[in-house]
Amino acid sequence: MRITEQSYLVLLALAEEPRHGYGIVQAVRDLSDDEVRLGAGTLYGVLDRLVAAGWAEASGEEVVDGRLRRYYRLTGAGREALAAHTDRLTALAARARRLVAPRPATGGAW
């Protein structure tokens, strides 16, 4: 499964602890520094794909204040995929830093 920015953030949110839908939305907002605000449709689109790929699973539900909260958690395969993708992003960030670092001027005539 291809990991988009949204699904990466959802995976990260679930890596910390099992969360319910609203908990994931809040965690993603915090993780992305208030940049990514998931809508309900997008979130469940991502969750459907993660569950179908065997990376996340439902882990129980409870009713709080008359609202249903179903919790989701990462599976072992999900955690591995998350770690692998994080390594890829780290390597990419390191290469990126080399590319955008200020370079000494070369070949100036004056």
Partner: peptide
């Protein structure tokens, strides 16, 4: 049920319906 609960969590307090802004992406995702 959990989707309805989430929509209620995301909506303004006291909202009596799901507005277009939240609804259209739902339509698309559905």
């Amino acid at each position: 049920d959990e989707m309805t609960s989430l929509l209620a969590d995301l909506a303004e307090p006291g909202a009596r319906r799901v507005g277009l802004r939240a609804g259209l992406p739902l339509l698309w995702s559905g």
